Computed example of a mutant assay.
Amino acid sequence: MPTSYRAPNRADTTSKKTTSQSATTNLSAAEATVGDLLSGKGNAIYSIRPQDTIGHAVEVLRDKHIGAVVVTDANGALVGILSERDIVRKLADTPGRTLPHKVEDVMTKDVQTISPEEPLVNALKTMTNGKFRHMPVTDATGLIGMVTIGDVVNYRLTALEHEALQMKQLIVG
């Protein structure tokens, strides 16, 4: 045995404490904001005018593969939102005569919006409590995007997958 060898003792192994959970990792999902989601998703907004027909709105929903579209005035200001659910209700009231109706007669006028600084969990709570799946995002300049309940769930699932991968790397080394 070489003379320089000395068995390690406790003083030699200064603890570098690592934890798989910390305040940062546990709060990261709670601290994610609507703006964080938009920065990854993009802020494409599809809009129609109040005087457009439901027939035109249905084509936009189909062509853009979306479930709701914002309704804006000529200046781009938000005046309503039209969802598939709104159209289905009108369809039930006026079977066979729905498509010629104006968007302004069917749209939801009292639109709940959210700011990009709001936590994602607030968006989820608002949509769940209000029983709607789409929410426009606005700031001081006006309409800047749209989030859906699916976007929020997907964002959280991606975060969970990332957290699971980090934990696996900590365990495996």
Results as ranks from 00 to 15, higher is better:
T94E: 15
E161Q: 15
V60C: 02
G76R: 03
T33F: 06
M167L: 11
T25Q: 03
Y5L: 08
F132T: 03
L165G: 10
S47L: 00
F132A: 04
T138C: 15
P136F: 01
V147C: 04
E117T: 11
M167V: 09
D105Q: 06
G80N: 03
P50E: 13
L124H: 09
Q112T: 09
G130T: 05
L165K: 13
S47W: 00
R10S: 15
M167N: 08
K131E: 12
I144D: 04
T141K: 15
V34T: 01
G40S: 09
S20W: 07
L124E: 12
D12H: 08
S20R: 07
N154H: 06
T148E: 00
T18L: 10
S47G: 03
R97M: 11
A92D: 13
Q169S: 09
T25F: 05
V137E: 02
P136D: 03
T19Q: 13
D63L: 14
T13R: 15
V152A: 12
A74M: 08
T126G: 11
L61T: 01
Q112P: 03
H56P: 05
G40D: 11
D52R: 05
E118W: 11
V152L: 13
E104T: 04
D86T: 01
Q169V: 09
L143F: 10
L143H: 04
T18R: 12
G142M: 15
K41T: 05
A123T: 00
L91V: 11
G76P: 00
L170A: 00
S4Y: 08
H56I: 06
I114Y: 02
A74R: 09
T141F: 15
V34W: 00
V153E: 10
T14R: 14
K64W: 10
S28N: 08
G150Q: 06
R6V: 12
K17D: 12
L120C: 02
D110R: 02
H65S: 12
G142L: 14
D36S: 03
K102F: 04
R10G: 11
G40M: 06
Q21C: 08
V103K: 02
L157R: 09
T25W: 04
K168V: 12
V153K: 09
A123L: 04
V70C: 03
A7T: 14
A44V: 15
S15H: 11
I149K: 01
D110L: 01
H134P: 05
N129W: 13
V152C: 10
G80Q: 00
L160I: 13
N129I: 09
R10F: 11
N122I: 10
K131L: 11
I45A: 01
A30T: 14
L99G: 03
L124C: 10
I48P: 03
N75D: 13
S83L: 04
V58A: 10
L91Y: 06
D86Y: 01
V71P: 00
G67C: 07
T72D: 01
L99Y: 04
L38G: 02
E84F: 02
